[in-house]
Design a protein around this nucleic acid. Structure first.
Lengths: 192, 192
DNA sequence: GGGCTTAGGTGATGTACATCACATTCTGCA
DNA sequence: TGCAGAATGTGATGTACATCACCTAAGCCC
C-alpha cells in the first residue's frame, strides 16, 4: 500500500519511464488522507486537482434539483477521479467527490499534469491510455443502461466489483444503477 | 471540404505541428467514399481502423438479441468513430458502423496511430485531448440518461444537433435516445 | 444506554414507457 | 408510373419502475 510504489506499478503497466523520470513525475503528487464522509470536491468548487486512490473508496456523484443523487463512479484503489469536465474546462464543479470510507489519495493538479505531459512524452502516453480506458468503460456503461434492465445491471456491477456489496450501503448502489432504493431492495429480496 | 485541410484545421486546434510533421502524419490516412446504407464495420469483423468523417453522416450502433438497435453515436464531419473497444483490445467488432448518407472518411489504422503517437509527441497530445473530449461527452450522456426523461433528452439532442432532425429518420433518433419509435412519435405529436 | 439518525424493507398506487396491432404515408426503383 | 418496402402515426394493453407512506433494525454520540 505504499503510495509511491502503487502509482509506479500502475503507470509502468502502460508507459516506459526511467526511475529518474518517475521520481520527477511523482514529485508533483501530494498525498492526502480523508475520513469517511469527508468531501473532496463539492458542487460549485473551483476544481484544479485530480485524485489517484491509494486506499479506501470514493464516490463521484451528481445531485439534481437538490433531491436525487446519481453516482458516476465508485473510485477504488488505483482508480482516478475528479470532476473532469470542470477540471479541463476551468468551470465550477457540478460533480462532487467524497469518501465512502477513510481514504488516502494522491493529488495531482491540472497544471502539473499538463506540464508533465509536455515534458515527458511517455507521461502523455500514459494519460492518453488512462483516458481511453475511462472512455471505453463509460461507453460500456451507457450501452448497459440502454440495453439491460435494472436486475441485469445490478448483477453486472456485483460481478465486476464483488467488494462493493459489503463496502457500500445499498442506497448508494441504487444511486449508481439509477433506480430508487425501494426498487433495488425489492429486486434482490424477490423470491427465487 | 478538402480532406487534408479539414483534418489539419481539426488537429491544429489542439496540437502544434510543423507543416512537415502534419504532412507526415497525413500520409498515414487513406480517403474512402461510401454510399448511403453501406457498412464500414459489421459485427464480428476484425477492426483495425478508426475513421475521421469529412462529409456525410455515419452511425455507430449496437444490436442486441438480433432485434433492437442502440445508437452510440451519430458521426458528423470532423468526428471520429470506430469500435474503439475492438480496436484497442484486438477483439472482434460488437459495435457496427454504417452510413446514414453518402460519406467521405479518412481512415487511420490502429498501428499507424500508435506509430505516429510514439514518433510525434504533439500527435500523442492531440489524441489524448480527442479521447478526453469523447470521455466527457460520454459521461455527460450517461448523466442525461439517468437524470432526464425521454422528452428532455430529445430536446437536448436537437438543440445540440439541429441538422439531425432533417438528416436522420426518426426511428434512428429513437434508437439513439433508447426508446421505441412509437414513444418518440407520441412525444412530439403530443398537443401543446 | 436512551434517543436520534441512517439504512433498509414492504405495501398501495400512479405513470412513463414497451409492445402489439394495424393504418397511413413516403420513397426508391424496375 | 405503379408497386414493394420503409418510415411514421395511433390505439389498446401490459409492466417496470417511481413515489409516498410507514415500519423495523442497526449504528453512533454525548
Amino acid at each position: 500500500m505504499d503510495p509511491r510504489e502503487t502509482l509506479k506499478a500502475h503507470i509502468l503497466k502502460t508507459a516506459i519511464l526511467t526511475d529518474a523520470a518517475f521520481d520527477y513525475l511523482f514529485s508533483h503528487f501530494k498525498l492526502k488522507s480523508f475520513k469517511k464522509g469527508q468531501a473532496i470536491i463539492s458542487e460549485g468548487d473551483k476544481v484544479d486537482h485530480e485524485y489517484f486512490v491509494i486506499s479506501g473508496c470514493l464516490k463521484a456523484f451528481f445531485i439534481n434539483d437538490e433531491i436525487k443523487m446519481y453516482i458516476l463512479q465508485f473510485a477504488m484503489p488505483t482508480w482516478w477521479t475528479s470532476d473532469y469536465g470542470a477540471l479541463y474546462n476551468h468551470t465550477r464543479a457540478t460533480i462532487s467527490v467524497d469518501c465512502i470510507s477513510d481514504a488516502e489519495v494522491l493529488c495531482l493538479s491540472n497544471d502539473d499534469r499538463e506540464k508533465i505531459c509536455s515534458e515527458i512524452h511517455q507521461a502523455e502516453h500514459f494519460f492518453r491510455w488512462r483516458t481511453n480506458r475511462g472512455y471505453l468503460a463509460s461507453q460500456k456503461r451507457l450501452l448497459s443502461f440502454m440495453n439491460n434492465d435494472t436486475k441485469a445491471r445490478y448483477e453486472e456491477l456485483l460481478a465486476m466489483y464483488p467488494q462493493l456489496y459489503n463496502l457500500v450501503p445499498k442506497h448508494l448502489i441504487a444511486a449508481y444503477l439509477g433506480v430508487s432504493r425501494e426498487t433495488l431492495s425489492r429486486l434482490y429480496n424477490a423470491q427465487k
